[in-house]
Nucleic acid binder design. Structure first.
Lengths: 147, 147
DNA sequence: ATTCTATTGAAAATTATTTTCAGTAAAGGG
DNA sequence: CCCTTTACTGAAAATAATTTTCAATAGAAT
């Protein structure tokens, strides 16, 4: 029951270990915006025990390969998200963050034509090969707006 | 020779201290994407000595007031930028980051009509009051693309 | 099976940032 | 202008997420 993330690690030359399989399997099941610590607790409750060090190491490898994304929403710890297309459904999305309570909302945008155009322009102008992007909007959520 | 940032702090009820004046004055002169540590060293070389603790405290206040912006470009430390309009010139811009060497390029985009439209849509949909946004593109710079 | 070496867990280290605390200095009333 | 109040500062200690070290283990290849 190999999974796509594990396959990708294998292709990159990483060894296929039990710990990495546990971690990559769990990424589909844990909360969508998870922290290293949160994943650690999730695994403790369920399958097996994987050390935090190994979790950090695996998340780091997956991040470098761009299979997951690492975000800083100002909480003092990073949150991670899967960055793979799920079947034929593109999981690409952006974030709306409440600057007061930290509430996080995902949104999709139909923005990509413009972004692609922008990426192309910048590509030429600065000789950059653009591979990804992030858009984050900040504001006050319904709750926090009332004061 | 009060400056706008100091004025803003004063209005918010912060005391007008020598240290805060030194810091807010220097933000116009230090490198545009500065770190707390970098600002500290900048001040050591020039005017006066302000402690790192005070620098962190002041940057934190300015960030909360949205007079500066705090970015995580994956270096293990934050970078800050002024977030005020400079005369009649809007300093708003976005970032292009090399995922390999960390090279950072600012760019402006003529993107805002679409962004405003998006913001409005999300505002209604999620009852958010949107006050700011960040767009970051990731890729490989000219140097790093060759391998 | 054996060898080689990447990987793991536990503990120690790292390091940016925050907090503590005693001394200092704004701000405002008299 | 002096006095009182209390926010502010610097230095040092604390915090806490993440990384590294290191000895033991287990993939992978021959």
């Amino acid at each position: 029951m190999a999974n796509r993330l594990m396959d990708a690690l294998g292709i990159k030359g990483y060894r296929v270990t039990l710990e990495r399989s546990i971690i990559t399997d769990s990424l589909q099941k844990v909360e969508p915006h998870f922290t290293a610590e949160g994943l650690y607790r999730f695994l403790q409750k369920r399958r097996s025990r994987v050390s935090l060090a190994t979790i950090y190491r695996t998340l780091s490898a997956l991040t470098q390969m761009r299979l997951i994304k690492k975000f800083d929403f100002g909480e003092g710890t990073y949150r991670y998200e899967l960055n793979i297309t799920n079947g034929n459904k593109d999981t690409h999305h952006h974030h709306l963050v409440c600057v007061k309570c930290g509430k996080l909302i995902d949104f999709e945008s139909d923005f990509f034509p413009q972004l692609n155009h922008l990426a192309e322009k910048l590509s030429q102008e600065h000789r950059f090969i653009i591979i990804d992007h992030e858009l984050t909007l900040f504001g006050y959520c319904k709750q926090c707006a009332s004061d």
